Computed example of a mutant assay.
Amino acid sequence: MTKIVHVAVGVIKQEDKFFLTKRLAASHQGGKWEFPGGKVEENETVHQALHRELKEEVAIETLTCTSLMQISHDYGDKKVLLDVFVVDNFTGEAKALEGQQSGWFTLAEFSGLNFPAANQAIIDQLQKNYQ
């Protein structure tokens, strides 16, 4: 049986822009843009994982977040369970800390970016909520 990777995802929002990072080429789904986050570790809540991952990956402290959705996706070689949160209350200045590209993008700019398939449901929900 394929192991399911549980991931806490932060949709970091500031005004009308969203912070994205580009997966490193050697990683699963490498070269694609994504919302930052990471694996939920054993004995860790999803909120704890989100807070830790956003601090480690993009240098922000999450003050509050709102649950957006949960997504199960099978890539064939890997299954993921994404717990997705909108993070619009944070301190610090978002920047990639793991050598990847990053930037702030409007929803309109998403159409020109390549995302992992599991992210499409997030984008669809953001377009419903913020356009």
Rank of each mutant, 00 (worst) to 15 (best):
S27K: 12
S27H: 14
S27N: 14
H28R: 13
H28Q: 11
H28C: 04
Q29V: 03
G30Q: 05
G31I: 01
G31L: 04
W33P: 00
W33T: 02
W33V: 02
E34D: 10
E34V: 09
E34K: 10
E34P: 01
E34R: 09
F35M: 03
F35C: 03
P36E: 05
G37K: 01
G37E: 02
G37T: 00
G38V: 06
K39R: 15
V40P: 04
V40W: 03
E41Q: 15
E42M: 14
E42K: 15
E42R: 13
N43V: 08
E44Q: 15
E44I: 10
T45M: 11
T45W: 11
T45N: 07
H47C: 06
H47V: 06
Q48M: 12
H51A: 12
H51W: 10
E53L: 09
E53Y: 00
E53C: 12
L54D: 03
L54Y: 05
L54T: 05
L54W: 01
K55T: 08
E56W: 05
E56L: 13
E56Y: 11
E57W: 00
E57R: 08
V58G: 04
V58D: 02
V58H: 02
A59W: 07
I60A: 02
I60P: 00
T62Q: 07
T62Y: 02
L63H: 13
L63S: 09
L63P: 03
L63M: 11
L63D: 12
C65R: 02
C65P: 00
T66D: 14
T66K: 12
T66S: 14
T66Y: 07
T66L: 10
S67H: 14
S67T: 05
L68N: 01
M69D: 06
M69A: 09
M69L: 13
M69W: 04
M69I: 03
Q70T: 14
Q70W: 11
Q70P: 00
I71C: 06
I71N: 06
I71P: 04
H73M: 07
H73R: 08
H73P: 04
H73V: 02
D74V: 08
Y75A: 08
D77R: 11
D77Q: 09
D77Y: 11
K78R: 15
K78H: 10
K78E: 12
K78W: 04
K78C: 11
K78M: 13
K79E: 13
V80W: 06
V80R: 00
L81M: 13
D83K: 05
V84G: 03
V84E: 01
V84N: 02
F85H: 05
F85L: 06
F85I: 00
V86N: 04
V86R: 01
V86A: 07
V87I: 12
V87E: 04
V87Q: 06
D88H: 12
D88K: 10
D88V: 08
N89Q: 15
N89I: 09
N89Y: 08
F90G: 02
F90Q: 03
T91C: 10
T91R: 14
G92K: 11
G92N: 12
G92D: 09
G92V: 09
G92P: 05
E93H: 13
A94E: 02
A94F: 08
A94P: 12
A94I: 07
A94D: 04
K95F: 07
A96R: 07
E98W: 13
E98T: 13
E98P: 06
G99T: 11
G99Y: 11
G99F: 09
Q100K: 10
Q100G: 11
Q101V: 03
Q101D: 15
Q101L: 13
